[in-house]
Amino acid sequence: MLHLDITGEFVAFFLLSVVMITGAVLTISLTKVVHMVVSLAAVFLGLAGMFVLLQAEFVAFVQVLIYTGAISILMIFGIMMTEHRAEGTDPVKPLHETLAAVAALSLFGLLFFAIRASDFPEPAPFPFGEDQTLEIGKLLYTGYLIPFELLSVLLTVAFIGAIALARKEAG
C-alpha cells in the first residue's frame, strides 16, 4: 500500500497536520503560559484548515470564530486574572508523569491498532458542496430544533453562572 497519490488535498493535509501536532506539543511543553495560548491558537487554526479540507466550510468558519477568537481570548483573560508566572519545570511526581506518558502512548497504540485493523467502506460522494450553510440552517430549524433551543438555554445558564462565579464577592 505504498503508492501515494500526491494530490493537493494530501499536501495540504500534511502541512496542516504538521502545524497542528507541533502546536499541540508546544502547548504541552512550553513554559510560559502566554506562549502556550499562542501555540494552542495555531492548533485551532490548523483544525479550521482541516475542516475546509473536509468541505465543512461553515464549521471551519465557526471554529475560527469561536475557538481561535473567543476561547483563546477567554483563556488569556483567565491567565491574566489568575497567575501567569512560569510553570515549574522540575517534575515533582516522576512516577505519575511516567505512568501518564505510558498510558497516553498505550492509548494511542490501541487507537492506532484499531484504525489500522478497521475496514472502512468506500464512501459515497459528498453531496453538500454548494450552499452548505443553507442546508445546515434548514437542518437546525427542522430536525434539530429542540437541541438547538436547549443549547441556547445551556449557553445562557453557563454565562450567567460564569458571571456569578467570577464576580467579586459582595458579602
Binding site: H96, L99, A100, A103, A104, S106, L107, L110, F113
Partner: peptide, 20 residues
C-alpha cells in the same frame, strides 16, 4: 483529580487490553 483520572485511564486500558 489528576491521579483519579490517570487511574481511570489505566483501568480503561487494562480492560481494553483484556477484550482485545
Amino acid at each position: 483529580a489528576q491521579t483519579y483520572g490517570l487511574t481511570a485511564v489505566i483501568g480503561l486500558l487494562v480492560l481494553a487490553a483484556l477484550f482485545v
